[in-house]
Design a protein around this nucleic acid. Structure first.
Lengths: 352, 352
DNA sequence: CTGAAAGCGCTAACAG
DNA sequence: CTGTTAGCGCTTTCAG
C-alpha cells in the first residue's frame, strides 16, 4: 500500500544517505563522502555535482555514523553544578560559543554540587563518547573520580575549580590575586578589622580565596581574628547569616570580604536588616562580579573574574588537549580586577 | 614493540566492546547486549555473569553505536538565545534535570537572538540527530525555520516563546495573566497613569504581555497613552533609557510595568539617577522574578513565572511527543503569580 | 581521480 | 534461552 512512484529514493529509514546520493549520481559513496568534505582529491566537477545533489535531495550529515567510524564525536561534555549560578552560566555561554565556532557541540550535565549525582552524570556523559570533558568539580570531588575518565581515554580539563593531586589542565581565575585585591582595597581605606564570610572546604576556589585572604592580612601585619572567619557555601543565605553572626559579636569587624557576590549581597541584606548600610556603617566587598552586583543599592564593590575569557580559554585548552593528548598539562590563571563601586567607605567615615 | 601478554583482550581501538565480553564468556554479542539491558529473555545466571564480566573488564556502553542502529540518540537538543539570561538559565536547569532523570542528555546551542546564527545552530544540532528539540525561538523567527525540522523528522517543542502560525507544542508562562496581575496590582493601588517599558515585536511573550497590558487598562476604563508605551528588547539599558524618556514627559505616568525584571531594574536605576525612588516617587513592577529582583533595594514587586515548572513540563512534553509523534499539539500555559515587594506604593503617597 | 570492500559497536529478527 | 546474520551511515585503505 506504500507509494512506489517518483518519490526521490530514500534509505531504509526514509532518510537521505550518502548511498542515496551516490546512486542518484552513479558514483560511489566514497566519492560522495570525499566530495562533501571538499577533499582536494576529487575532481572539481564531481565535487559540484555531489554538493548540488545533496542539496536537492535534502541530505543531512549524520555525525553519529561518522563518529562511530572515526572515534571522534565532535561533542564536548560540560559538567557543572548549576547553570543558574551566574559564574557558571557565564562560563558555559563562552564555552558553547567557542565550541560552536570550532564545529563542536556541547553535551550538558549538572551535578547540583552532589558527589553521587556527579558520578552518575559523568558515567552517562561518557556513554555518549564526547571528545573531551570540561568540568567544574562538585565540592569534595576526589582525584579518582576524574582520573577514571582520562584513563578511559577522555581528556578532562578543569574549569573554575580544581581537584588537588591531579595534574590535569586547569583554567580559572587567579583566586590569590582576587583575595589580595579585596584585602588591599580595604586596607587602603584604613580598615584593620576585616572579616570574611563564606567559603566551602571542598571547593578549591573558595579555599584559595580564604587562604590568600589570611596571608594578605598577615603580610600587612594585621591580626586575623578567627571569629571573623565564617565559612559556608556561597549563597545569599550564607551572607545573611554570616553578617548576623558578625554583628552579634562584642567586637565586630569594620569590613568584610565575601567569598562571592551572592554571599556579599546576602551580607548587605543582613546589614540592612540591622538598619545598617554598606558603604556607610560597614564595608563589604564581593568576588566574581555577578549581574546582581550592580543591581543592588548600594552597588557592590567586587573583584571581577573574567568568566567569558575563562570559558573561552577552557574550551580552547580542551580542544588542544584533544588534539594532543600527551602534551604536558597546562594551568591558565586569568587575573581578575577590582571594581570599586559603593559598598565600601574609608574607616574614618564608619561609626566604630 | 607492543605488549602482547595477559592484558585483557581489547577491540581494535583498545576499547572494551560487547564482542570482547562475549568472547571472554564464550557467548554471543546478542546475548551480552540483551543481558546488559536486563531483557527478561536471558537466563538469570548468564545475566549475572555478563554484568560481572562487564564490570571486570571496564566496559562502557557506546550510545553512539546503539543510536546508529536504533535511530534513537537519547539526546535532546536545546536552543536558546543566551544561557546567562536568568529566565533561560532557570528553564535550562530544569530541562536538564528532567531529561537526565529519564536517561537523556542535553545538546546545547545558543542563538544570541540572531536569526542567521540560529539557522547555523539548528543545522548543526540536526547533524547530531537528537531525538527532539526544545527551542526558545530567537526574535523574529519565521515558521519555516522550524517547520523544516519536523519535516526532517525531529519533533520540536517551543518553550517560553512561540512562532505564530505554527501548530507545535508550546510550554510557557501565561503572559496574559502576567500582564493582568501587574496592571490590577497598580490599579488597586490607585494608579491611573500607567506606562509600560520594554517589549520586542519579534518575541511572542513580549507581544502578549504588551497586548494584555493594553487590554487590561481598557477593560478598567483607563485610557492608554501611546507615549507611555516604550518598546525595546528586555535589558537593563532599555529600562534606564525608557525611564529617562518617561520622566522627560510633560505628564509622566505614576506607575510602570516592565516587560521583564532586567528592564524593571533598569527603570529603577533610571529613577535613582533622577533622584527619585521606586515605591515612593513612582511604582514599578517587573515580570519574571529574576534573582536580581530581591537583591535590589527596594526589592522589586514582580510577576513570578515558574521557570522550573516550565522547563520540567517542556521536557516532559517533548519526550511524550517523541514517543507519540502524531498526537495533537499541546499548549501548556503555566499561571504566574504576583509577588508584592517594595517597589510600588499607593497613588496617594506618590508626589504627582 | 574513482570504486570496492571492510568495519566502527551495537541491535533486531529469526532460527535453533 | 542463545547464536547467526545482517545491517545502521559513514570513512578509509587499497586497487584500478
Amino acid at each position: 500500500m506504500g507509494s512506489s512512484v517518483q518519490e526521490p529514493a530514500r534509505g531504509a529509514r526514509g532518510r537521505v544517505t550518502l548511498q542515496i546520493i551516490a546512486d542518484a549520481l552513479g558514483v560511489s559513496t566514497a566519492t560522495v563522502s570525499l566530495a562533501l568534505r571538499n577533499a582536494p582529491v576529487v575532481a572539481e566537477a564531481t565535487r559540484l555535482r555531489v554538493h548540488q545533489a545533496a542539496r536537492d535531495l535534502g541530505y543531512t550529515y549524520n555525525r553519529g555514523a561518522a563518529a562511530l567510524r572515526t572515534a571522534r564525536s565532535d561533542m564536548l561534555a560540560v559538567a557543572l553544578s548549576d547553570v543558574a549560578l551566574p559564574d557558571h552560566a557565564a562560563i558555559l555561554g563562552a564555552v558553547e560559543d567557542t565550541a560552536r565556532a570550532a564545529g563542536r557541540t556541547i553535551l550538558l550535565g549538572t551535578t547540583a554540587e552532589d558527589l553521587v549525582r556527579q558520578e552518575q552524570v559523568l558515567a552517562m556523559l561518557r556513554e555518549f563518547r564526547p571528545d573531551g570533558l570540561l568540568i567544574a568539580p562538585a565540592a569534595g570531588t576526589k582525584a579518582a573520580a576524574l582520573y577514571h575518565l582520562v584513563a578511559a581515554g577522555i581528556p578532562v580539563v578543569q574549569v573554575a575549580r580544581e581537584v588537588d593531586g591531579l595534574a590535569f589542565d586547569y583554567v580559572g581565575s587567579d583566586e590569590t590575586l582576587a583575595a589580595c585585591l579585596a584585602v588591599e582595597h580595604l586596607l587602603a581605606l584604613g580598615h584593620r578589622r576585616i572579616g570574611m564570610i563564606g567559603g566551602a572546604e571542598g571547593v578549591s576556589s573558595h579555599r584559595d580565596r580564604r587562604r590568600a585572604f589570611c596571608e594578605a592580612l598577615q603580610r600587612a601585619g594585621v591580626p586575623v581574628d578567627c571569629g571573623w572567619l565564617l565559612d559556608g557555601y556561597g549563597s545569599r543565605e550564607t551572607g545573611i547569616a554570616g553578617m548576623g553572626r558578625l554583628l552579634a559579636l562584642k567586637e565586630a569587624p569594620t569590613a568584610v570580604v565575601c567569598v562571592d557576590d551572592l554571599t556579599a549581597i546576602g551580607a548587605m541584606i543582613g546589614l540592612a536588616r540591622a538598619d545598617l548600610r554598606p558603604g556607610r556603617d560597614l564595608s563589604v566587598v564581593g568576588c566574581g562580579d555577578a549581574p546582581e552586583a550592580v543591581a543592588f543599592e548600594p552597588q557592590l564593590s567586587t573583584v571581577r573574574a573574567h568568566h567569558a575569557a575563562i570559558g573561552r580559554r577552557a574550551a580552547e585548552v580542551l580542544m588542544r588537549r584533544i588534539a594532543e593528548p600527551e602534551a604536558p598539562p597546562e594551568r591558565h590563571v586569568i587575573p581578575p580586577e577590582l571594581v570599586v563601586r559603593a559598598s565600601c567607605a574609608r574607616l574614618e567615615r564608619i561609626a566604630a
